[in-house]
Structures are given as structure tokens and as C-alpha cells.
């Protein structure tokens, strides 16, 4: 038996799926066992695209980054040869952490062929709360919420910025009693910050067309979103706990005075903090050592047969 034979193991809560299979197919099967792969917003998205696409999604708030939830991969190298990294168990320190490396940077080195995903238990009831108020009040609310013990159990904490509107969305899953307890506790935090909350059917779907992706620290992320949308229009979706921002500028934004310069400034600030801003609108300015290492690895892996 190879570790990377396709499998679905409901008992151990993991599955090895082809990279081209839609994540919804896996989630339908897993739902029958009360399980799901939580880091998915679009059920039609192929698993390979999902894991190499965004490093964070809404439910990364609770379940961690994409790389924390990919247990292993069969990966096609630039040489065209498949190579196995990681495995199927939830802890693995055998050799260098190539699974995490490839999930976060694999686009430069090849493509996954099969992916082993970690599944999680799915609670019966899902409650999404929409929190609204002025930006300042919502900031107070978010700061207060992120200091509470609820951060350990809430699935998602996203913020959406459109025009002058800002709203935070919290998703929580439990049984009916647990959900009632959650709503009561959140109302208390909201009241203390002067924020309104109301249940909504589901989390907003993060934009698939974001041309600007910013990874920064928590305190800088929401102000950056507010500033971008306020000055240049468009809309922004923030995975608040992970300080990861997806920004969809208006169609002609790059022609607007100051837009590219602002992106450059955000990029520099993020890089100084060990974050980054990715966009096709700016030329990449990767460090010399990074470019050289990427090139060397690529060349080496091209020759691996």
C-alpha cells in the first residue's frame, strides 16, 4: 500500500483526493460521517487549486492556515516526476517540512496531483452573526472579541468593506444550546462596544477575483481595508484573526492618482513586519537570496527523476 493511494478514512478523519476533484465532492461524502474540510468557500473549486490558492480562508480563524490542514501531497515536480511529501497522520516531523513549504510556495515549483486533507467534526447547528456600527466601534468590538476565550471556539471572524459600509461576521457551530450561549455572550460584547448584531444565513463568500492580497498584523489590517475602500472604492474582505485581506479594486483603479503608490507603501510596511502584499499591479521585489534559492531549487527539482 502506498501512503498516497486514494482513500477516505472517516474514523481517522482524513482523505487522499485527486487534486482535480471538487472539494464539495469530498465534503458531501464527509458530511455523512459528521465531518467536513472546513477551509472551503466554493464547493466547486478543485482541491489542488484550493490548497495552493489562498493561504487562509474564513475558517482559518479556528482551524489554522491551509498549510496546517494539508497532511501530505503527491506533487508533480518541474521534471514531470511525482514526489511524495508529508503523509496521512496529523503530526509528522519526519524530514524537512516540505508539505507546508509547497502549500505556501508550491505554485513556483509544480502542482499537486493528490492531496491528503485533515477533516474535522461538523457540529449540528451553524450560527452566523452580522455585526454593524461605525468603523471605530467595530474596531473596539473586534479588539474586545479577540481578547475573549471565544476565539478558541468561533469558526470564522471576517470583515467586509464596501463603500462606506463595514460589517463583521462571526460564524459559530455547536448544538442548539451551545449556539444560544454563544449568541448571548456575543451580544454582551457587542453591547459594550455599541455595535448591533443580527443573525444572517451564512458567511459572505470571499471574492475570488481579489487582485490585491495583503498579509499584515491584526492592528494594521482593518485600517488598511478601510483606507483602500474609502480612497479608491472597490470592496475588501478581511480574515480578521489572520490579518489577511483580499481587496477587489474598481476596474480602473490603477489609473487613479496615488493608488499604485499606496499599494507600494502598504507592501513596504507589510514586508517590514514580515508580511507581504501580492498583486499583479506591482512588479515583485523579492530579495536576491530568495530569487536565487527559488531558481536553484527549481533547477534541481527539474533534474530529479
Amino acid at each position: 500500500m502506498s501512503l498516497f493511494d486514494l482513500f477516505y478514512d472517516g474514523v481517522d478523519m482524513s482523505a487522499c483526493v485527486p487534486a482535480g476533484e471538487a472539494v464539495g465532492v469530498l465534503n458531501r461524502r464527509a458530511a455523512a460521517d459528521g465531518l467536513h474540510y472546513p477551509l472551503c468557500a466554493d464547493a466547486a473549486q478543485p482541491v489542488g487549486e484550493l490548497v495552493l490558492g489562498l493561504p487562509f480562508t474564513s475558517r482559518s480563524f479556528r482551524y489554522g492556515a491551509m498549510a496546517d490542514n494539508v497532511l501530505g501531497m503527491r506533487f508533480t515536480l518541474p521534471s514531470g516526476q511525482p514526489v511524495d511529501v508529508g503523509g496521512r497522520v496529523v503530526k509528522n516531523v519526519t524530514g524537512f517540512e516540505l508539505t507546508r513549504f509547497l502549500v505556501n510556495s508550491g505554485r513556483h515549483f509544480g502542482a499537486p496531483e493528490r492531496v491528503v486533507l485533515r477533516l474535522r467534526p461538523l457540529a449540528e447547528v451553524c450560527r452566523v452573526l452580522r455585526c454593524t456600527g461605525s468603523f471605530e466601534r467595530l474596531q473596539d468590538f473586534a479588539r474586545a472579541f479577540l481578547r475573549t476565550s471565544w476565539v478558541h471556539v468561533v469558526d470564522a471572524c471576517d470583515a467586509c468593506f464596501t463603500g462606506t459600509d463595514v460589517a463583521y461576521f462571526l460564524e459559530f457551530r455547536a448544538n442548539a444550546e451551545g449556539v444560544a450561549v454563544f449568541e448571548k455572550a456575543l451580544r454582551a460584547v457587542a453591547d459594550a462596544s455599541g455595535v448591533e448584531i443580527a443573525p444572517v444565513p451564512e458567511l459572505p463568500i470571499p471574492p475570488a477575483t481579489a487582485t490585491v492580497r495583503l498579509k499584515t498584523v491584526i492592528s494594521k489590517a482593518a485600517p488598511a481595508a478601510q483606507m483602500l475602500v474609502g480612497r479608491f472604492g472597490g470592496r475588501a474582505h478581511l480574515f480578521a484573526g489572520n490579518a489577511y485581506l483580499l481587496y477587489v479594486p474598481e476596474a480602473d483603479a490603477e489609473k487613479r492618482p496615488g493608488f499604485l503608490q499606496t499599494l507600494g507603501e502598504l507592501h513596504n510596511e507589510a514586508c517590514d513586519l514580515g508580511g507581504h502584499l501580492e498583486t499583479p499591479l506591482l512588479a515583485p521585489d523579492h530579495a536576491d537570496w530568495d530569487r536565487r534559492w527559488c531558481q536553484e531549487l527549481y533547477q534541481k527539482w527539474k533534474k530529479l527523476d
Binding site: 505556501n104 498579509k215 507589510a270 514586508c271 514580515g274 507581504h276 530579495a287 530568495d290 530569487r291
Partner: peptide, 26 residues
């Protein structure tokens, strides 16, 4: 050389690849 991979923001910094991921468990 003294290099920093990632930082408080936990991103890639001025890099295309996640070298920090390789440092952990090395």
C-alpha cells in the same frame, strides 16, 4: 548571513517561497 524569514505578520516578507516553513523542524 543573518536573514529574517517572516516576522510579526507571519507572511513571506520579501520572498516568493516560505523559507520559514523549512526552518521549523529542521
Amino acid at each position: 548571513r543573518l536573514l529574517r524569514f517572516g516576522g510579526p505578520a507571519g507572511g513571506l516578507g520579501r520572498a516568493a517561497a516560505d523559507w520559514r516553513a523549512l526552518m521549523v523542524g529542521s
